[in-house]
Design a protein around this nucleic acid. Structure first.
Lengths: 138, 138
DNA sequence: ATCCTACATTGGACAATGTCTAAGTCAAGA
DNA sequence: TCTTGACTTAGACATTGTCCAATGTAGGAT
C-alpha cells in the first residue's frame, strides 16, 4: 500500500497533510481500526486534525475502493486496508478482535438461483464468530 | 411463534402488556424491523409504551434465543423473529430490504482449519448484497 | 516566485441509535 | 387481598456519524 498515495494523486486527489496521515495510519499495523481510533492515531502525528476530516477521508478511501468498511457488530464501523485481497473475517465474540481469513470456494455458489428472488447479487460477506485463543482460556 | 408467550412464561417471564405487544409486533408480518420501528408499531396498540421497554424486551428476546439480531449496515440493528429456522440474509444495497435465504451446504466447512487461528468458531453469518428487482429497474 | 481559486479542513451544532437511572407501577405468588 | 421484587417510565446521557459556514491551502496558471 506504499504506493497508495501515488494512486490517489493519479486520480486527482489533492494531497494534504491530513490525508497523508490518515493513509499512513491505515498502512501501519494491519488491524481494523474504528474511525475514532484512526483519529486518535492520526492526532499523534498531526494534533490539529479534526474528526470530520478523518470521517471524510475514510469515506473517500472506501469510495475509491482502497479500503473496506466492516461492520461486525452494531457498533462503530471498522476500516480494513486489505481491500485488494479477497477475504472474509473471523471475529472474537468476547474481545472483538478481527482476523482476515481466506475461504475455500466461492460463497456466491451456495445461494441457489431460486433463493435469489430476482436480485442482482453482487457481493457476499461471510463473518465467522467464536472465542479467540486468548478469551477461550480466560 | 404463537406459543412464544407460553414458552417465555415457562422460563419465568413476568407477562406484561408491554412484552405481549412487542412479541405480537414481531409475530406479525415476517419482516425485519428496527427497534424504533417495533416501538412505533407497538405504540399503535399501547400508546404509552416507552422506548426503553422496547429496547429491553428486544434484548431479552435475543438473549433467550427467540429472536435474532441482524446488523447489515452500520445503521440500526434489525430484529428477525425467524430464529428457529437456520437461514441467512439477502439485502438490497439501495433500499435496504432484507429477505431470508437458505444456503446449500454449511458455510462453516468453507473455513479450513489453518484459517481458524485457534478460535472456537461457533457461528457464521453470510450476507448477500445486490439490487432487488424493484431497485434494479428504477 | 507569486497569485488564484476550487477544493479541503475545521469546530461545533445536530442527528440517529442505544444505554442508564431513579422513581413509580404492577403481576403473580402467599 | 397484600406484598414484593421485577417491570416500566421519562428523560438524561453516551456513542457514532453527518452537516455547515467560515477559514485555509495545494497546485496549476501567470
Amino acid at each position: 500500500m506504499s504506493d497508495l498515495l501515488e494512486r490517489l494523486r493519479g486520480r486527482g486527489w489533492r494531497l494534504t497533510a491530513q490525508r497523508r496521515v490518515v493513509a499512513e495510519v491505515l498502512d501501519g499495523d494491519h488491524v481494523h481500526y474504528t474511525a475514532d481510533e484512526v483519529h486518535a492515531r492520526a492526532s499523534e502525528r498531526l494534533p490539529e486534525i479534526s474528526r470530520a476530516t478523518v470521517y471524510n477521508t475514510l469515506g473517500e478511501l472506501v469510495s475509491l475502493g482502497e479500503v473496506l468498511e466492516v461492520s461486525t457488530d452494531g457498533r462503530a464501523k471498522r476500516y480494513d486496508p486489505n481491500a485488494h485481497h479477497d477475504h472474509q473475517h473471523l471475529v472474537c465474540s468476547r474481545c472483538g478482535t478481527i482476523r482476515d481469513v481466506h475461504l475455500q470456494g466461492d460463497p456466491l455458489s451456495a445461494l441457489p438461483e431460486p433463493e435469489r428472488y430476482g436480485f442482482q447479487v453482487s457481493e457476499v460477506t461471510v463473518t465467522y464468530r467464536g472465542l479467540c485463543p486468548n478469551c477461550s482460556t480466560a
